[in-house]
Design a protein around this nucleic acid. Structure first.
Length: 836
RNA sequence: GCCCGGGUGGCGGAACGGUAGACGCGCUCGAUUUAAAAUCGAUGGCCUUGACGGCGAUUGUGGGUUCGACUCCCACCCCGGGCACCA
């Protein structure tokens, strides 16, 4: 017999060629809505092409490919496309450094991703490939922007925006981290006043929140989105400044504490602050305070620990519930972006107001006492933020539980015209302008006569002009291309200038999954019929780092496009799976740490199947996993054993003599193998449905171990069946070697066969090992017949030698019988001999 | 501070309230080999020369529920993540 040697490189190249030549994974649109029921859209988040793919990519696409293959073999038509999120800062920064056009470095990287995806054997429908920087794609990104503009969802306003001095561009709120640093480069972010484009995502806050109920996403991702949206119920209450005859509404979640409001505070950015202080003794001081506050970084201002500061405005407002005149302050602990930029301060029942009152020696009036009057009733226990009953609130409200009083007071405010129930959100509108080159130009013109004019649809795309100097200078590099900027107004024909900002790249990735459904359409972004066929995505897969931004923006786009009549579904991703990070030596892989494991080098060493299988085997895919070279070798050995035993069995059994079958009349070791194979089918099928790839692969290992153990004692036909079954089950994780083994054993292409199904009767055994316990401790095991009665099982257990030993002289108080599992005797000493 | 996850052998990890440690890695020993690699097999706390067999401890800590708890409940410790002057 020739020495059979597992050669992953030869095997993988051979099968990859077949899949490429036969375009095995391509699916055509059927334009048949009825086909939808049997379709499946499996999608991994598209990669950002920078350099080479890293191990995290290998994990994402290994997970996605396993699901795609599983769905196919369950008989579904699977859409599994690929594309590139090609615009963005890293490519542009590279261009600034080297002068090389970002298109070139991006093309090099994309080629590398394409090559490696093929070498990993990922089952991609390449006919639908796209990249967001291609004019054929961003033409429609621009069209969507204009649709949003036309419906009022894209608007322009001057705003205090987050500016990164290093990247020389504005950032979305979401792109600034907790320390007030640029998410990308880590520099401290500054505030600038600029005219910017915003998308009105806040209009969708309620639906983005409510529709989370309708989708099958991990709980932690839903929680993150809920926190980010930050819905608060409360009331808007109007405080009037009589001197200047101006009403100031405030938002509060605690209208029940309204009688305890002893002062009033405005944010430094509030437009009325200087006007209010004007002419008072505090005018100068206020002006200085505002200047300092505005120039402070968010990081400094946001520090919870720092002492409260502020300045009196020298004015008073009236508390509507009791007519009290309370003093106004400006203080930087009040944020302009939330609520109305002004608050009523209730120092007795709010930590921050309390700290401010102490610092400025302002009155603190308790209006809620804990029910039952405990220590917390002591004024030293203030601020008190819990529930209780109202005090110091006048005869109408005193004594009411505060939760009841809250509703009562809101009704009173409403009746008197001093306020109403209200809901507030933490979510802010999405700032999409970027003063950078490598992005989709915002398709807007500024005409001297007509003002803001959208570029007509038939003039899209607004193409990026070629430039030489990518260096940021505080404005978009596009602004320097005078003959591009200067154009004519499509409305009046007069002189107009182009918008020179480009769009946040999150805009590009907020609709790419729609384009995959109809990628070559040059008459529209997509045909609604094509979307009906595939959308929503059945299974979306990606990193948890996108839990908020990308996933929120994509949901927003779908809802907005649905409202505009372009889609007939509300949520883009029906199910979401977020995979954990791959670390090395417990740390995130990075060049500076020198612990980067490149997928290419692993594939070179042990092949793609072993690399893919290992990364799924190392642990549950939603958790972080630490890469181990020794571990991948172990999986490589497993695949070698499978292939060798498969090849050897194929030779022995007269290869390719048709599909093998488990013989129902099998006996002895044949029956053991037959049962193990069916157990594995059942186990792997269940594990695939719950993304437990690690235990699925372990089950195939167990099956193979039994095959090896029984290779000489079992019938070769049964061995052929068991090994072919193992290969079939392993195909979603290690497609090349599985296809190879399966073909050798059966003459068939495994991906053309349907997923095996386990036979119930082979999952059950006629005898099993009955666990015998005494007082909950395992004492013996005996063979028991399936279907034996409880009494029979008790008898069996009672007869077990080691049970006898432990029952010796003791009285059986109780017997617990779990058929199919165990018998537990609860005993106590028959004679109470107390001895020490 | 608030909200989520998570703590199991030397390591990664398994385990519907029912045999804790599947599967893999590593270590050690053995077979094969002139040798090594590769491959195959075995041990893995204690008692027993050894196998067989038996015994005890054990899933971050302390309590509780239960015939029985890694699993459920309460309190605490540690690690990771998200949010955080959001009224």
């Amino acid at each position: 017999m020739t020495a059979l040697q597992y050669d992953p490189h030869e095997i993988e190249a051979r099968w990859q060629d077949i899949w490429a030549e036969e375009r095995t994974w391509e699916v055509a649109n059927t334009h048949d809505a009825a086909a939808h029921a049997n379709d499946s859209y499996v999608l991994e988040m598209l990669p950002y092409p920078s350099g080479e793919p890293h191990i995290g990519h290998l994990k994402t696409y290994s997970v996605g490919d396993a699901i795609a293959h599983f769905h196919r073999r369950l008989g579904r038509r699977v859409l599994h496309p690929m594309g590139y999120d090609a615009f963005g800062l890293p490519a542009e920064n590279h261009a600034i450094k080297t002068g090389e056009h970002p298109r070139l470095s991006t093309a090099v990287s994309i080629a590398s991703f394409q090559r490696q995806f093929r070498s990993w054997g990922i089952s991609i429908d390449w006919s639908r490939e796209l990249a967001t920087h291609e004019p054929s794609y961003y033409r429609w990104t621009q069209w969507i922007f204009l649709e949003l503009f036309r419906s009022g969802l894209a608007y322009r306003k001057e705003a205090a925006v987050k500016w990164c001095p290093h990247d020389q561009t504005v950032l979305a709120n979401e792109q600034v981290d907790a320390d007030g640093r640029c998410e990308r480069c880590g520099h401290l972010v500054e505030v600038r006043q600029l005219e910017q484009w915003f998308l009105r995502i806040t209009d969708y806050a309620e639906r983005l929140l409510g529709d989370l109920e309708t989708i099958d996403w991990p709980a932690n991702v839903k929680t993150m989105q809920r926190n980010w949206i930050g819905r608060s119920e409360g009331a808007e209450v109007t405080f009037r400044c009589d001197e200047l005859a101006i009403d100031y509404p405030v938002f509060t979640t605690r209208p029940d504490t309204l009688f305890g409001a002893t002062f009033f505070v405005m944010a430094p950015e509030h437009p009325d602050v200087l006007r209010l202080a004007h002419g008072t003794e505090h005018e100068h001081e206020v002006r200085e305070y505002v200047n300092v506050a505005l120039n402070e970084s968010n990081q400094e201002r946001g520090d919870v620990e720092r002492p409260k500061t502020g300045v009196p405005l020298g004015r008073r407002v009236t508390n509507p519930v009791n007519g009290e005149q309370i003093p106004m302050y400006v203080a930087d602990y009040v944020l302009m972006e939330y609520g109305t930029g002004a608050i009523m301060a209730v120092p007795a029942h709010d930590e921050r107001d309390h700290a401010f009152a102490r610092a400025f020696d302002l009155p603190i009036r308790r209006v809620i006492e804990p029910a039952g009057g405990s220590d917390a009733a002591d004024d030293d226990a203030l601020p008190y933020t819990g529930d209780g009953v109202l005090v110091n609130c006048g005869s109408d409200f005193d004594g009411l539980p505060n939760r009841d009083a809250l509703a009562e007071i809101v009704r009173w405010l409403d009746r008197e015209g001093n306020g109403h129930a209200s809901v507030n959100y933490r979510l802010r509108d999405w700032l999409v302008s970027r003063q950078r080159y490598w992005g989709a130009p915002i398709p807007i013109l500024y005409c001297e006569d007509c003002g803001v004019v959208p570029v007509p649809d038939d003039q899209l795309p607004v193409q990026l002009p070629e430039i030489d100097d990518y260096t940021p200078k505080g404005r978009s590099p596009l602004a320097a291309v005078e003959d591009w900027v200067s154009t004519n107004c499509p409305a009046c024909g007069g002189r107009a200038r182009r918008e020179t900002d480009t769009m946040d790249t999150f805009v590009d990735s907020s609709w790419y999954f729609l384009r995959y459904c109809d990628p070559h359409n040059d008459l529209a972004a997509f045909d609604p019929d094509a979307l009906r066929e595939w959308m929503p995505v059945d299974q979306y897969i990606g990193g948890v780092e996108h839990a908020i931004l990308h996933l929120m923006y994509a949901r927003f786009f779908c809802k907005a496009l649905a409202d505009l009549g372009h889609l007939d579904f509300q949520e883009p991703f029906q199910a979401l799976f977020t995979q954990g990070m791959v670390t090395k030596d417990g740390a995130k892989m990075s060049k500076s740490r020198g612990n980067v494991v490149s997928p290419a080098s692993i594939v070179e060493r042990v092949g793609a199947d072993a690399a893919r299988c290992y990364i799924l085997f190392v642990g549950p895919p939603d958790q972080d996993a630490d890469w181990s070279d020794a571990g991948v070798d172990g999986v490589h050995r497993f695949l070698s054993r499978l292939w060798r035993l498969g090849a050897e069995t194929a030779e022995r059994g007269g290869a390719a003599s048709g599909p093998p079958h488990g013989d129902a009349g099998a006996q002895g070791d044949d029956l053991v193998l037959l049962r193990k194979a069916h157990w594995a089918i059942d186990k792997v099928s269940g594990d695939l449905r719950r993304f437990a790839f690690n235990t699925a692969i372990a089950a195939v290992m167990e099956l193979l171990n039994d095959c090896s153990r029984l290779r000489d004692s079992a019938d070769v036909e049964m061995l052929r069946f068991a090994l072919a079954t193992g290969a079939s089950l392993l195909f979603p994780f290690a497609p090349h070697v599985s296809a190879d083994v399966f073909e050798r054993l059966t003459g068939e292409r495994v991906w053309e066969t349907s997923w095996p199904s386990a036979e119930e009767e082979l999952l059950e055994r006629d005898v099993y090992e009955l666990v015998c316990q005494v007082n909950g401790k395992l004492r013996d095991r005996v063979q028991a017949a399936t279907g034996a009665s409880a009494d029979e099982l008790k008898e069996l257990c009672l007869a077990a030698p080691n049970v006898q030993a432990h029952l010796d002289g003791n009285e059986i108080v109780k017997a617990i019988v779990v058929p199919g599992k165990l018998v537990n005797f609860v005993v106590r000493p028959a004679v109470s001999t107390v001895s020490f």
